[in-house]
Design a protein around this nucleic acid. Structure first.
Length: 569
DNA sequence: CGACTTTGACCTGCGC
DNA sequence: GCGCAGGTCAAAGTCG
């Protein structure tokens, strides 16, 4: 009887058979929730529901009610209990199925969202890449335009010089440094002493007086070619461009060609009028196979007195224990003074790579923090730089150009060009994170590249300065981001075995960037980056002559690149 | 002995 | 005009 009842009940309950339900449940879960562990969750839900089933109370009540019945009736009641349990299980299964369906629905929803986000990300990535390529092309086009315009200006001047005074102004010989470089290189091929570190033709008179326009045009085109082919010297030309352009603008604006021509500098342009001592000095320099000793001359003095050659100042603050910042150039100390307000003496250095290089360097420790070394550069090198000095000189020169342009009220094309070039140069070296402090309050406009302070600190101090001054006498773009960066911080701190990063490291890096900009695959990009990093590391660890500041800048570049990659991948 | 550094004197510009 | 501060010169000293 009990069995009959039980079998009838089972027949009635056939559609809710637990085995069927379980198999359905399993099938559902395995087909739709494989990726999201919902099967396990569903099992957990089911078991938890089973554990907390409200039917437990009814079941216990039934047990209590049937407590006084006979043994036969006990058996039948036990069957009833089993049926009730099965019924409860069916209920729980219904609930679980509903829950799983809801989860599956959510899962599908999230998948759709994920695909949408992936699409958007892909579009953004493409847009970013396109922007990078476009900017690079614009930058290259701008450089070509600048170069050709400069060459045209040089041609105009040379042409005018042939019609006007027979002497090329000394300022001109400075401002047309790139032309000088070109003539130097062009003469180097026919020079009888090619072993000279810097060809004597560089210090010989420019050929403006007798040069035809055609020849100067040829030189201009040669200049363009050389700038694209040579690595060492063309960088020197590029790096000095902001100041050169500024001086051109100054010369044009002031009409000061005659004034400068009478300052003694013209002697450098015409050997006929140059004092014998200077001529001898230059000859000695030109024929010196290696090294050169400082010989101040009248011409040098006039150069030094010509403030137009040494206008802007670029200060670099580094945290180092070394007496000076090794920047790859040769310097000779010529003085030391105790400046007011600072117990630390200020040392004066001049560049001795070339006899009439107007570049000066001041080195002074910070009064508040003796570990901070402030190196102030003034002027632009008029000679090819050692590879180790190119990076630093380029950065400081660009900063100076940027400063001078920004402090200018002139709308001269040359000035704006130089400004653009300076900013681009800075952006190139610092991956658009160069954040110099520009000060117009000092007698000489100056720019500070602070490698000791964090971005946030600099922002705060700049905000405080603006707040205190109530004017824009000191407007800040904050500092290089060096602090808080393990590599750059180590580089700055470890100035003792100072760094040298040869030029190939930068070239390698730029090549890697170019490859990436050209749309090569991410793998190629990674390889290029890795090569650059390897080169940079090898150079830094092998050659003990480079600046910690440059290392910091490179670290900044590398870190930006790596960060970008991390984000992309 | 030559190259480089040190250091006092000198020059120059600027503010009062 | 004077004083001050920054910058430079050049003789003397130092070092490899």
């Amino acid at each position: 009887m009990a069995h009959k009842v039980s079998s009838e009940t089972l027949q009635l309950l056939q559609p809710f058979k637990i085995g069927t339900g379980e198999s359905q449940f399993v099938g559902l879960c395995t087909s739709q929730a494989k990726t999201t562990h919902q099967f396990l969750q569903g099992n957990e839900v089911r078991s938890s529901l089973k554990r907390r089933s409200p039917c437990d109370h009814d079941r216990s009540a039934v047990k209590r009610k049937s407590g006084s019945a006979s043994s036969s009736s006990e058996r039948s009641s036990a069957d009833d209990l089993e049926l009730e349990d099965e019924f409860d299980a069916q209920k729980q299964l219904e609930k679980t199925k509903t829950e799983v369906e809801r989860m599956v629905h959510e899962n599908q929803k999230m998948r759709r969202m994920l695909s949408v986000m992936a699409e958007e990300y892909s579009l953004l990535k493409q847009h970013l890449h396109h922007t990078a390529v476009t900017r690079k092309q614009e930058h290259e086009a701008r450089i070509i335009t600048q170069t050709s315009e400069r060459a045209e200006r040089v041609d105009d001047r040379l042409f005018q010089a042939t019609l006007g005074p027979q002497r090329l102004s000394p300022r001109k010989s400075y401002t047309t440094l790139s032309t000088s470089t070109t003539s130097r290189s062009s003469e180097r091929s026919r020079s009888p002493t090619p072993t000279a570190p810097i060809s004597s033709s560089f210090y010989q008179p420019t050929q403006a007086a007798g040069e035809s326009e055609k020849q100067s045009k040829a030189k201009s085109s040669e200049l363009n070619q050389e700038q694209s082919s040579r690595t060492g010297e063309n960088i020197m030309v590029a790096e000095t461009m902001p100041l050169q352009a500024l001086r051109e603008a100054d010369a044009e604006k002031e009409g000061s060609l005659q004034r400068v021509a009478s300052s003694g500098f013209q002697e450098s342009s015409t050997p006929e009028t140059r004092p014998d001592s200077d001529h001898e000095a230059n000859k000695n320099y030109a024929s010196e196979p290696s090294g050169w000793s400082w010989q101040p001359t009248k011409r040098m003095k006039s150069v030094l007195q010509d403030t137009s050659v040494r206008t802007a100042r670029v200060s670099v603050r580094t945290r180092t224990d070394a007496p000076t910042m090794a920047d790859g150039c040769q310097w000779r100390k010529y003085g030391q003074k105790l400046a007011k307000g600072n117990p630390c003496p200020r040392s004066y250095y001049r560049c001795t790579v070339a006899p009439d290089c107007p570049v000066r360097k001041q080195v002074q420790r910070c009064a508040e923090d003796r570990s901070v070394l402030t190196t102030t550069y003034q002027g632009a090198h008029n000679h090819p730089l050692p590879a180790a000095a190119v990076a630093m000189a380029s950065t400081t020169s660009a900063a100076a150009g940027m400063l001078l342009m920004s402090s200018s009220t002139s709308s001269d094309r040359a000035r704006s060009e130089a400004l653009k070039h300076g900013i681009e140069n800075l952006a190139t070296f610092n991956n658009q994170t160069s954040l110099p402090i520009i000060s117009a309050s000092t007698p000489c406009p100056s720019v500070m590249l602070d490698l000791t302070r964090s971005f946030q600190n600099e922002c705060n101090s700049a905000a405080a300065a603006v707040k205190a001054n109530g004017s824009a006498s000191r407007f800040s773009f904050a500092s290089f981001r060096s602090q808080g960066h393990p590599f750059s911080e180590a580089a700055v701190a470890a100035e003792k075995p100072s760094f040298q990063l040869n030029h190939s490291a930068f070239v390698g890096y730029s090549q890697g960037q170019a490859a990436a900009a050209n749309g090569s695959e991410k793998a190629a990009r990674s390889v290029e980056l890795a090569q650059s990093v390897t080169e940079a590391t090898a150079a830094i660890t092998s050659d003990p002559k480079f600046t910690a500041a440059v290392a910091a800048v490179v670290a900044s570049i590398i870190s930006s690149e790596s960060l970008g990659q991390m984000i992309i991948s």
